[in-house]
């Protein structure tokens, strides 16, 4: 299978602190990958670096997406190329109605341009899928939304934009059982309808239950220390990250 995302020798961090070290990771088109690791391992940072977050600087290596080197591209270019990052804590944007925002980001993409009538219909369908009242659409983007509602809005955008690669950064965190079920349905719908690739950053194996996982990656202290099939998730579920943390410490020591 062709590689949609290819990360090669990637090192990155903030101005003050290196966080990611010499990382190599590939995701094929339509594949589902899971990125796991203890708190502070750098999982979210990796998601944001792939998206081009200006907070982080790439100090080495390359990121290739869909055959193009995007290492130096701005986030909007990466988004338009087909990468979607679902935020762990979506940002509130007062003054911008959700519906207007959705219409704007859809019309930015020539392949998704549609008439206003079709757009309303499409948004309505997705809202139904996600158990979202359409009253949300007239509210300001994420303003005053609960944690679960914000995650639903992220799923709404995911299903609307149909990206080639979705990076879901702890989309399940802080959700109650019902909200988790709705978000899971959104992810399933994305896989079913869009056949896009998924990079799931998560601690919670429950959200993975209905997904066919192709590869599992384990990160510790900014390094990828293990990679394996879906069964690795069960292993981590039962035994935790202790042995990987030892591997990570050893790798850090060796590098030092």
């Amino acid at each position: 299978m062709s590689q949609l995302l290819n990360i090669s020798g990637l090192s990155a961090g903030t101005e003050e602190k290196p966080i990611l070290h010499d990382m190599n990771l590939s995701v094929g088109a339509g594949e589902t990958h899971v990125l796991m690791g203890p708190n502070g391992a750098g999982k979210s940072t990796l998601g944001h670096v792939i998206m081009g977050d200006p907070v982080y600087k790439v100090s080495g290596g390359t990121i290739t997406f869909d055959g193009q080197d995007i290492t130096d591209k701005t986030p909007d270019k990466r988004s338009l190329a087909g990468i979607f990052l679902s935020y762990q804590a979506p940002v509130e944007v007062p003054g911008v109605p959700l519906y207007s925002f959705l219409r704007t980001i859809t019309q930015m993409r020539p392949e998704l341009k549609m008439t206003a009538r079709k757009f309303r219909q499409r948004v309505g369908e997705i809202c139904d899928q996600l158990d979202m009242g359409q009253g949300f659409l007239t509210r300001e983007l994420n303003v005053g939304f609960s944690g679960g509602e914000k995650k639903k809005v992220e799923m709404l955008q995911l299903l609307l934009l149909k990206p080639k690669l979705a990076i879901l950064d702890e989309t399940d965190s802080g959700l109650d059982v019902d909200a988790l079920s709705v978000v899971s349905r959104g992810i399933e719908a994305y896989r079913r309808e869009c056949d896009g690739a998924l990079l799931m950053i998560t601690h919670n194996t429950r959200i993975l239950e209905k997904l066919d996982v192709d590869r599992t990656h384990v990160m510790v202290k900014g390094r990828l220390v293990a990679e394996g099939p879906a069964s690795l998730i069960d292993d981590i579920d039962q035994n935790g990250f202790a042995r990987f943390e030892q591997d990570g410490a050893a790798a850090q020591k060796a590098e030092a």
Partner: peptide, 29 residues
């Protein structure tokens, strides 16, 4: 407009100028 708001909007495909214009657009809405 807060930098994290601009970053979020850029992550959805809007350039910096387009992100800023979104607020004006909302006013016309």
């Amino acid at each position: 407009v807060e930098p994290e708001q601009i970053d979020y909007l850029m992550d959805r495909g809007l350039s910096r100028d387009e992100a800023t214009n979104l607020f004006v657009r909302a006013l016309f809405d």
